[in-house]
Design a protein around this nucleic acid. Structure first.
Lengths: 109, 109
DNA sequence: ATCGAAGTTTGACGACGATCGTACTTCTGT
DNA sequence: ACAGAAGTACGATCGTCGTCAAACTTCGAT
């Protein structure tokens, strides 16, 4: 029972919660995942990310991101692909992802 | 020694750190402080904020906000006034405060 | 049918942070 | 000079969260 392949629940845009999104994005590892996903411009498998944590910890982070609505997850074979829900996040919180994924602009000296 | 009136250290814009700013803003109480400050459009004393925590806890929150660069604090008599460092934050992280202080836009049904 | 690759699940653990009460400091009025 | 108002400093507590290891599941390839 409980096939691993079943698609996990994803929140609807109308249910996105700023508090939850911020709690997801405050963690450096998770923010790095979002940034890498944004830079890649394509869906990525969990294992392909450059993060320095164990597999179980990675699973945890992806779950937090998914439940906050930041990513969508789906299986392809044994791999779990992750898609950034850019448009939906922008609809719910305009400018937020832009502000967080934009590389730091050096301040004039 | 250590007069209370001495101005506490404030970070320079060039030292603003995204991680630190996010850690400051992820707390609902602190985000509420920033929002109230933004809405007021003027500097406010610590005691005038609508927050449901003790005085010592409030002091802690203001300190976290100040060290992250979100507010500037200065004394006037026995009151400590708080100013939102809007322009500087916008320079360091364009769009961030906008995204966080903007009231949630209802999603089309 | 079996093996390995890719994730998940389930505790356990440790650290950090929000909170409070109490005591203390500094200034303003009276 | 004194009392009160406005914060600050200091511990102490308590919950939550990030982390891992170990055992398990599922799928694909051989």
């Amino acid at each position: 029972m409980g096939r691993m392949g079943r698609t996990p629940p994803h929140p609807d845009v109308s249910q996105f919660d700023l508090q939850q999104v911020l709690e997801a994005l405050v963690d450096p590892v998770r923010r790095s995942i979002v940034t890498q996903l944004d830079a890649a411009g394509e869906d990525l498998a969990c294992g392909t990310f450059d993060i320095a944590v164990s597999k179980s910890t990675a699973t945890h982070h992806f779950k937090v991101l998914r439940e906050a609505g930041l990513i969508r997850q789906y299986y392809v074979g044994t791999s779990r692909l992750n898609a950034l829900r850019r448009a939906e996040m922008d609809e719910a919180f305009p400018g937020l992802l832009d502000a967080l994924t934009r590389p730091r602009v050096p301040v004039a000296p």
